[in-house]
């Protein structure tokens, strides 16, 4: 076999990427630019305008920081979201643990029960909670009939009602976050601890909880952000008496027609979200490093 000397130059890399590969991105990019990026930019622009004269002004930011009602709304938002985050995580944990470890046929049923409400939409569930919690609702009727209370307990149109409703809305997401984390823990580690003589309680305290901290953090995080940005549940279950940032933003747009103020509130809410997500993300990566997972 004689080897023929080749004088052809090295072939150019055929796989080199050409601009044609970007063409499919144009339509989704165009839509997102026009109806997302540009509107957000305009909202930021409006936030530094005077509500009446449209001149450059930081008045709305000043008002946000000095108006007691608005600051109260901000703190109410944070309090509500914190409570929801805790309730969701505490309630999601047993369900997630069951789903992660069970092999029985009930697993599918519990999974469906846990996730299905998400299909129903917020209105249906909020409506359900209203007829359960309102003054002449289900729970109060029962309590009065049983003679525990003489006048209806205030269960809706306040912090309690909103936290119950939001916990219900966010719970499936908490379950999914914890499920992923618990599924990542080798069940043999728990068995190994038991063989070594650990009681169920010490297994939970020394094995399960420490190893699922990343899941707990991500459940807290997702619950907090979902609760803080929720609109419909606080609007319906909180009513006029319990205002949070999201409902206050709506009022500024629809009732006061004060766009700069609405924009400022929206930006504060957005910054709060991004800060929490960022900080939570940092905590999560640090935990993952520490636990080597």
């Amino acid at each position: 076999m004689t080897i023929v000397a080749t004088d052809s130059p090295a072939a150019p890399a055929r796989r080199a990427f050409t601009l044609r590969g970007y063409v499919p991105l144009f339509p989704p990019f165009a839509v997102l630019l026009l109806f997302f990026a540009v509107p957000i930019g305009m909202m930021i622009g409006i936030s530094v305008q005077d509500p009446k004269t449209s001149q450059f002004s930081m008045a709305s930011y000043q008002r946000f920081l000095t108006d007691g009602l608005i600051i109260a709304g901000l703190f109410r938002t944070i309090l509500m979201s914190g409570l929801v985050a805790i309730c969701v995580t505490v309630m999601a944990y047993p369900v997630a643990y069951f789903l992660a470890r069970s092999t029985s046929r009930w697993r599918a049923v519990v999974f469906a029960l846990a996730i299905a409400p998400e299909l129903a939409g917020v209105v249906l569930r909020t409506y359900g909670w209203l007829i359960i919690l309102e003054d002449r609702g289900f729970v109060n009727d029962a309590l009065i009939w049983l003679g525990f209370v003489s006048s209806p307990l205030p269960l809706a149109k306040n912090l309690f009602g909103v936290v119950v409703g939001l916990t219900h809305v966010v719970l499936p997401f908490g379950i999914l976050a914890l499920l992923t984390s618990i599924q990542g823990i080798d069940p043999n580690i728990e068995k190994a601890a038991q063989i070594l003589g650990a009681s169920r309680l010490s297994v939970i305290r020394h094995i399960l909880l420490p190893l699922s901290i990343p899941g707990i953090v991500s459940s807290l995080l997702i619950s907090f952000t979902m609760a803080a940005s929720a609109y419909a549940t606080p609007a319906l279950l909180g009513g006029a008496r319990f205002k949070v940032l999201a409902t206050m933003i709506f009022e500024q747009i629809m009732f006061y027609i004060n766009w700069p103020m609405a924009a400022v509130m929206a930006i504060v809410l957005l910054v709060l979200m991004l800060a929490i997500t960022f900080a939570g993300g940092r905590v999560e990566t640090r935990l993952h490093k520490k636990l080597n997972i």
């Binding site: 080749t6 052809s8 090295a10 072939a11 150019p12 890399a13 055929r14 796989r15």
Partner: peptide, 13 residues
């Protein structure tokens, strides 16, 4: 694609 040299199949580069 080779970085250098030539591949021929049935005599064709």
């Amino acid at each position: 694609e080779p970085t250098g040299g030539e591949i021929r199949i049935r005599g064709r580069n």
